[in-house]
Amino acid sequence: MNPEETKEFEQKIHAFVGRENGPPKKGKDAVNEPMIRQWAEVMGDESPVYTDKETAKNTTKGGIIAPPSMLQAWSMEGYPMAGSPAVDVQRSLHNVFDENGFTGVLGTNTSTEFFRDLKPGDEVTYHTVIESISEQKSTARGIGYFIETVTQFTDQNGERVGKQVFRVLKFIPADAPAEASSVADDSPAVPTRIAAPRGHDNGWWWEAADKGKVLIQRCKSCQTLRHPPRPMCGECQSVEWDSIESTLDGEIFSFTVLHYPKVPGYDYPLCCAVISLAEGTRIVANVVGIDTEEVKIGMKVKGKVEQVDEKTMLPQFYPVAGGQ
């Protein structure tokens, strides 16, 4: 969008501010036990006041109540949302965003107040007003606008039972995957660590790691050890080399603990260290088996090659007991 188009777009969306989404509307179902039970099952709500009539009677509630956090559920449109949702004012507003490329939608905040517990038989009426639309924001998800709506919930007697402020982000997806996977795959995708690309000069090292060994490259001509591997010896320019296996006895030369950003496939806080090996070369690897706050420069460590996720074998170093 050029600046004029942006201006026109913003005028269009701001015209929605202050409008009611529609007249007050009654929820499709009265508060009822089956829906409460289903909710409690999924959410892991253990309280007997949601599901156990007899026990609930003997509490201060005097009988079954609906979980307070379920309030908004009594106002949901339900199945039509999946196909042809009713075109209310809020939907028209979203359509204006969609037409302009802001196809992403994400709930970002809710603030819900509960004025009384709801019991089976209560009938909830809801009334939503579009409260505000932010200026354009640059977010982690992409460029977008926050839309804030306020919904008042009342009961069959017109008494207020709750109020909810709801904030959603409508945004231009920053990097939509080019092609949606067409294979039905319901297995959880557990991310793995970023793999080292393997080439002519380093592939042999990673293949040894896959078999549980850490090797150190050695010049066949002058016996100098080197890591990370390189095709030529910097001391004597020989391209002939073999390797020795490291004992993985080491000492922490420097380290850092990573907190943010959290890259999928890694556990945080994550300790990475430069380790001086007994053989005289250094290696970068994780330090594990210790509270990251306790890691110190100079600490003695011992490594072993471990499977750290489904696909990755890596040297991991552990503190040596009493090895300060």
Partner: peptide
Amino acid sequence: ILTSNGLMGSYVTNWAGPDSCTKKIDLKL
């Protein structure tokens, strides 16, 4: 977001017990 709300609510009411009364849930996603 309703499920997130529900999980947050149940986490607290499971701790607080059946006679507790939830007054407000402020949630940032």
